[in-house]
Design a protein around this nucleic acid. Structure first.
Lengths: 229, 229
DNA sequence: AATCAATTTATTGGATCCATTGTTCTTATC
DNA sequence: GATAAGAACAATGGATCCAATAAATTGATT
């Protein structure tokens, strides 16, 4: 699955999360194939992949439709990520941090400290945090030393808001967003402390709580029952 | 994806879990297509599905190989199932059991009581428990009322020992196995009690602990580092 | 006019074909 | 004799073709 097929998957993923393909919309193979200028074959492969990822679902007997996500789905997605990354953090703490992982996490903390020392954040700083955040979570996901856990998290990272490395900002209110993100950084610091001290249960609890911050990122507190993004 | 393609997926799944296709074995599309007597097209679709499920993985650049699972992978698989079903149980308890769910769970408890009242269990009784067990877990998985959680659990149920409805018995020692299963039934009773009383945190904790009983089912305490089943 | 049936059309699933790429075997040169 | 380069081969990815099935439209009958 190289080239066209992979491109088709990521293209459709983006089209769905961007809302260009609306929830409930029926997708035909020929239609999408012509849209992307390729034959039906890679589209068929892409549809199966996206079905497994949960972004598409079979519509009755014929064709696929874009999956609709309710507010409850999104919250459960965050909770799922929370328990899985919490499990990863616990196992990481129990096994003891490697010097490499500890250094990488320390770097994330330092970078965050430097970032949030700024008095007048810009839009770029939001993206910088996004990168730091993704790095931090990435170290923990891999740091559990379990392919099974990393895979499970990856499998659940395609749903909207469920991925730790795709934060959606409200770029109109940079400093308000910046303050929200600062809380995330403080949580990272606490998780890091627990990991270093080998406190598995505490690291797990903190990661689970940390997942809920997605509700703030996405402004999901006031999210309508049916997402139409 | 009906007919041949679906059959190909389940056939390959069975061949892998049965050990007829050994871990690390390279699978070619033409080879498998001829083996199953179909063309390459449904095999290609099946390979992508099995890759997503984590049973196959790309070997370098060309071809797929059967994924090898270590003892650690299996244990992590159980833990993943534990945290996910724990999450489901907690949300179920928090939302309050529906009368339907409560009745269904009660029925599982009653059936288990009747089963384990037997003094001289037979091999069939092991299978009976397997059905009761699957029913109990199924009610909880669905009972969380979240499509997202049910999907996440389903996505993680294809790995060896990770599914709650595929228990592997040692049929040579029926009553020893029967005693192991009795412990599972007692755990079900406690989970049921917590759910009825709306004790979400306790229900979650109990479900997480309950997942580890897979280590006893599969006799994984003495499992070799590299599974070659 | 409404409903049921039949025919036609559109769409998906499977098979085959072609091209591109990775691998391997052979040969030639150092 | 070993290594590198080139050629032959095998296998995957993409496109096209054919068959089967579901949906839709039209026509006929009540």
């Amino acid at each position: 699955m190289s080239g066209v097929s992979k491109v088709a998957v990521s293209t459709l993923r983006k089209l769905i999360s961007d809302g260009h393909l609306k929830p409930g919309e029926k997708l035909g193979e020929v239609q999408v194939a012509e849209m992307l200028g390729v034959s039906r074959t890679p589209i068929r492969l892409a549809f199966r992949t996206l079905e497994q990822e949960g972004l598409l679902e079979k519509a009755g007997k014929q064709g696929f439709v874009v999956r609709a996500f309710s507010r409850e789905d999104v919250i459960c997605g965050l909770e799922i990520r929370g328990v899985l990354e919490g499990l990863a953090a616990r196992k990481m703490a129990e096994a003891g941090l490697t010097v490499t992982d500890k250094a990488a996490l320390q770097q994330c903390i330092d970078d965050g400290d430097a970032l949030f020392a700024k008095e007048h954040p810009t839009e770029v700083d939001l993206l910088n945090w996004s990168e730091i955040n993704a790095r931090f979570h990435g170290v923990i996901v891999k740091g559990a030393g379990s392919r099974a856990i990393a895979d499970a998290i990856a499998r659940n990272s395609h749903l909207p808001f469920a991925s730790s490395d795709s934060i959606i900002f409200d770029t109109r209110h940079v400093d308000r967003e910046f303050r929200k993100l600062h809380l995330a950084h403080l949580q990272h610091q606490m998780v890091f402390q627990a990991l270093v001290m080998g406190e598995g249960a505490r690291a797990e609890m903190l990661m689970r709580e940390h997942a809920y911050i997605g509700l703030r990122y996405g402004g999901l507190f006031g999210l309508p029952e049916a997402l139409e993004s």
